[in-house]
Each structure stands twice: as C-alpha cells, then as structure tokens.
Design a protein around this nucleic acid. Structure first.
Length: 291
DNA sequence: AAGATTGTTGCTTA
DNA sequence: TTAAGCAACAATCT
C-alpha cells in the first residue's frame, strides 16, 4: 500500500526523470481512472510538460506548464507509477534485457490504466490492479480546496510536539484511528500506523485521550523516526508496491509488527505479535511491550 | 472457497 | 459543526 514513504520515493524518482519533457501523447486505457472530464484530461496534458512534482499526504501533485493546471494522482491501494526509457518491448517479451534500468515487468500489461508518452520516447505507466487509483486535472482553486482538507505534514518543520498535543486534545477515538485519519496527520496508512505505535510502545486500541505526556511524546518521535527510515529504505513492499523504477521497497525487512503476527517480539523477546481489528483495519501489536 | 486485504468516500448516528 | 463508526468499492490472495 503506497503510504507517505512510498509516495515520497516515487515523487523523488519521477522528478529526476520526467520534468520538462514534452508529453507527446496520453493513452487513457481505463476512463474510470480519471475523475475530471476525460476529453479535457488528454487535451490538457498533450503538448505540455510537467514542471514540478509535489506530495501532500499520499497525493501526488504534478505542476503543468499550462498555467493554473495540476495533475493529481492518488495510488490508493495498488496503484503504481513506473517509468521506462526508450522504446517499448515486443509483445510478450521481457522488458529488461539487462542493458537498461527498466522495470522487470512487461509494460503495458492488463493493469495499465494510463500511459504517458514523452518526446524522448520514454514512458510513464499508471498501473493499478484493483482500479481504485484516481487521476484528475484541477485548477489552483480546486487544488487548494483538496489540500486544505489534509492534516499536517509529519515531516515538515511546522509539525511540532505542541501542534501534535493540540491535535490530540478533545479527541475521543483510539490511537490507531487517530494516526490513520488524514485530516489530522497526512500520509500515515495501515503499515506505518502499526509500526509507529510499536516503536512508541503504545497499544493501538488505547484511547487517545488516555495517553500521558510521555506517551504522546514517544508517538510524536516515532512518527518522524519510522517515516524517515522508511523513506531512506525506499518504502515497504508487501503486496503490490513498486517504485518508479519498478523495484520493491526495502523497509519490508525492518517491519516489527505488520504481517508479523504469531511471531515472537524482536524487542522484548517475550511477547507474541497479536492481530486484531481496530478502526476497521487489521492491526498488529506486541502483547507484552506495548502498553 | 469464503473471508481478508486496505484508502477513501459517503452515509448514519451522536 | 464536528467527530466516530461502518459499509462500499475492486480484484486478488490465502
């Protein structure tokens, strides 16, 4: 699942590959993926260039050279953005002949929803197995409206302990639901919510208003620590995530609780990682060292 | 082979 | 007005 570290990795990769290249052609293979008028979508992109790429929470924002237009892409659960340079491979062939950096998957494939062709013959593939991912073109005003609904960016300087404490005040839910809520903090999903709470030694079902000052500080520090480390290792691949190079994330080997149920806790070496459902999501925790 | 998987929206309820 | 809880969505994996 692409969460903040995965989306950040894709953004950084793509910034080095596609900026200021002319978009020669856009092939929209699944119309449902586009949530703004389909005809305008293709027309607004073709002949233009991406001038910058930003991330807000799990949302990718592509600035277009056409003034006051932005391409938004949300990968949701199984979306992928894969860049390939050069000509496409023959049908049924293997796209990596060992001589380039292309992904080790055949592209396009049956999950390809949009293809962007650039003037230097490189291509960007928006693949999405489960068809939940969305793309749309918005103007500045619409973009503002969308990004205003997101909570604080956890890796920005303005995410202070004081702001975190203020966010927690007057909330009634549990810690897991709080971390997952994009209106409070933007970018945390199911994997990192569990990893953050393990790092902070707080049980995911704990009422957020029952946490003491020390626990709040630990969660605050864990958010930054886990997300930064996950970006350093280019994200987590468990099911379908790959980066813009078509490669898996390496944070998977650092997972302490996510998908580790029934295993012995690596930290306290006493507990067994448990799995339950909290906030409607599969939730893992150590039954000994998380309190 | 039915149930689990998960990010977001939209509905209902408080 | 705001928040909490939950079904729905899709297509695969277990």
């Amino acid at each position: 699942m692409p969460e903040l570290p995965e989306v950040e990795t894709i953004k950084n990769d793509l910034k080095q590959k596609i900026l200021r290249k002319k978009i020669e052609k856009v092939d929209l293979k699944l119309k449902k993926t586009v949530k703004s008028p389909v005809r305008n979508f293709v027309l607004d992109l073709e002949g233009n260039k991406f001038t910058n790429i930003k991330r807000r929470g799990k949302l990718l924002i592509f600035n277009l050279s056409q003034k006051n237009k932005y391409l938004l892409i949300h990968l949701r659960m199984t979306g992928q953005l894969i860049y390939q340079k050069g000509k496409e491979t023959t049908a049924g062939g293997h796209s990596d002949n060992g001589k380039n950096n292309n992904a080790i998957i055949d592209l396009p494939n049956k999950h390809t929803r949009i293809i962007f062709y650039f003037s230097d013959e490189s291509q960007l593939f928006f693949n999405d197995l489960r068809r939940f991912g969305v793309a749309k073109i918005v103007n500045k005003k619409e973009l503002r409206k969308i990004t205003d609904d997101f909570g604080v960016e956890p890796l920005e300087k303005d995410f202070s302990l004081k702001i975190f404490k203020n966010l927690i005040e007057n909330k009634n839910g549990n810690a897991k639901a709080f971390l997952l809520n994009q209106k409070y903090i933007a970018g945390i999903g199911n994997i990192y919510a569990d990893e953050i709470l393990f790092e902070a030694k707080v049980l995911p079902g704990r009422k957020i208003n029952s946490l003491d000052v020390k626990e709040i500080k630990k969660i605050y520090q864990a958010i930054k620590k886990i997300l930064k480390k996950a970006i350093k290792y280019r994200g987590t691949t468990f099911y379908s995530y790959i980066d813009a190079r078509g490669q898996k994330g390496n944070f998977t080997k650092f997972l302490k609780v996510y998908k580790q149920e029934k295993k012995k806790c690596l930290r306290c070496k006493k507990g067994i990682i448990q799995k339950t459902k909290i906030a409607g999501r599969g939730t893992r925790y150590c039954n000994k060292c998380q309190k």
